[in-house]
Design a protein around this nucleic acid. Structure first.
Length: 417
RNA sequence: GUGGAUGUAGCUCAGUGGUAGAGCAUCAGAUUGUGGCUCUGGGGGCCGUGGGUUCGAUACCCAUCAUCCACCCCA
């Protein structure tokens, strides 16, 4: 049996990796613009971190984690998301002693979830994420959102929509939760099976259900934003003002409830119509209690995660990915034994001078070498035969124009540089 | 975890109850040191895997795995 990549994983092949590099370069420049620095955390953590961080009742923790015992009998889990690790690291290295706010991002870190693969959903995918700790001001929420929005604008993405909501804080959420539960109790007969089980454990999640009869019930359900405490309500309104200052269109979506338990106040998602059923490219929010819950000090936080594969899917679909960037590539074609050796020497010399070059590695005939040079799209070919070896003047052919000239070693290096 | 579609050469796909083809790609040639066009030829497939029906299955039936899509959930 042939061994294939595990279900829900993808290879990035040599011909495509430049797309990732392109995107990663843009993202690094952007983060630099916002004064964020990169953090790198391990691909796996102690399972407890995610149980405490992400939340016991979430789908991620309940059924999607790659958890195993290592040889030291520790329960280990492959990261299902990025925030918990950042928080753990912050606490472990006492970064809370640094000047506030703490700003960090992570890029192309792999995250793992055991789900059934479909369009835009993988078991291993990669995320770009941003986290900021120590500040509770609403203009920070807007600023975090603007990082994602700016990236999308720079890339030229269309058909995106920004959804925001506030899910309250430990002061107002229990009140709302109770109201919601009372409301759903009276409509039990119209709820689907999963929602009935949610009723006890996490009634807020019913708001997110796509089942038709549940949606009917949800339509008239109490909305989080109507039960926010004064602090949360002010925060939410203020956020909207700041988003307006930045000129963003947004939708207040009371049904937006995120599947991770750590969120408080602001939650948001950026949605694309070009992704099929998995429409979220970027999702995040505020998590003011998470650091404390993980054993750290009382420190507010906010951040988002963005799926690199999904982002690339949209770029591809909207035709926004450029061709592989132009590069001056030189091929050295040679004929007899003597010229082959001369070519081999020249190849090393070109590379020493920073010129990207390649020679024959297939023992091809001269003509076949030329064909190859054409196929691989070399911009120049250096031709070496008896003549060139004798005179020490090499033939440089411009493959696009078809022109050629005879040059000394030094001239050759200078023109190709 | 549930449901639908699909699985034949590197890729896109034909095809028949008697163990397979096309186009593209690849490689080699078309008189001696020059690519792109054209022409000729070669290599490459246990027809996803395991069972069953049959004298015989790539084709029919079952199972399984994988891919794609939807539910669920999320990036």
């Amino acid at each position: 049996m042939q061994i294939k990549a595990p279900r829900g994983t993808q290879d990035v092949l040599p011909k495509d990796s430049y797309k990732w590099h392109l995107l990663e370069k843009r993202i690094r420049e952007l983060c630099d613009l916002y004064q964020f620095r990169e953090i790198r955390t391990p691909a796996f953590e102690h399972t407890d971190l995610f149980i405490r961080g992400v939340g016991e009742t979430t789908d991620i923790v309940e059924k999607e984690m790659y958890t195993f015992l290592d040889k030291g009998n520790r329960s280990i889990t492959l990261k299902p998301e990025g925030t918990a690790s950042a928080v753990r690291s912050l606490i472990e290295h006492k970064l809370y002693a640094d000047p506030m706010p703490l700003k960090m991002y992570y890029l192309s870190t792999p995250v793992f979830r055991y789900e059934k693969p479909q369009a835009g959903r993988l078991r291993e995918h990669h995320q770009f994420g941003v986290e900021c700790f120590g500040s509770i001001v609403p203009n920070l929420d807007a600023e975090i959102i603007s990082i994602a929005m700016t990236l999308f604008q720079q890339l030229g993405l269309k058909n995106l929509s920004l959804n925001i909501n506030s899910i309250g804080c430990p002061t107002c959420r229990p009140v709302y939760r109770q109201k919601l539960k009372e409301y759903f109790e009276t409509h039990k007969e119209d709820l689907c099976e999963t929602c009935l089980s949610r009723l006890e454990r996490n009634p807020i999640r019913i708001l997110d259900c796509k089942n038709e009869s549940c949606r009917e019930v949800v339509k008239n359900a109490p909305r989080t934003i109507d039960y926010l405490c004064e602090d949360c309500s002010d925060h939410f309104h203020s956020l909207q003002e700041y988003l307006t200052i930045l000129g963003y269109d947004f939708v207040v979506n009371p049904g937006l409830v995120r599947g991770l338990d750590y969120y408080t106040k602001t939650v948001f998602e950026i949605i694309s119509t070009d992704l099929g059923a998995q429409s979220t490219v970027c999702g995040g929010g505020r998590y003011d209690k998470l650091v404390e819950e993980c054993g750290g000090p009382d420190l507010a936080g906010i951040g988002f995660g963005m799926g690199i594969e999904r982002l690339l899917m949209i770029l591809e679909k909207q035709g926004l990915l450029p061709e592989e960037p132009y590069k001056n590539k030189v091929y050295i074609a040679s004929m007899d034994e003597a010229s082959k050796k001369e070519g081999f020497r020249l190849l090393a010399l070109l590379r020493k001078n920073g010129i990207s070059a390649e020679g024959d590695l297939m023992s091809r005939s001269f003509k076949a070498q030329m064909k190859y040079a054409d196929k691989i799209n070399f911009t120049h070919t250096v031709i070496i035969g008896e003549e060139e070896v004798k005179t020490k003047k090499f033939t440089l052919k411009n493959m696009e124009l078809g022109t050629q000239e005879s040059l000394t070693e030094e001239e050759l290096i200078n023109t190709l540089k």
